[in-house]
């Protein structure tokens, strides 16, 4: 396991998460919160692809016959 830090969240939120993860594979609130935060952060980091890059890819897809 990587090194960890404590973060405080409101008790009511903690309880709601506890309810939410019942019956899922998440075994603790910590696990779930880590997962959700990673997802949120990764959405912000995703967009490095320029319109120009994308046009190049479309061109390639057309030449291979994947796109009309």
């Amino acid at each position: 396991m990587p090194e960890e830090r404590d973060i405080s969240i409101p008790q009511s939120l903690y309880k709601r998460i506890q309810e939410r993860i019942k019956g899922t594979g998440f075994s603790s609130v910590d696990e779930y919160v880590t997962y959700v935060l990673r997802e949120v952060l990764s959405e912000d980091e995703a967009g490095e692809f320029t319109e120009e890059d994308e046009e190049k890819v479309r061109e390639r897809l057309r030449s291979l016959g994947y796109l009309e």
Partner: peptide, 17 residues
Amino acid sequence: PRYRLWPEDTRVLFREK
């Protein structure tokens, strides 16, 4: 070569479709 697609290709393909 006709069937070699990398993740950036398939991601654009799915969006286009």
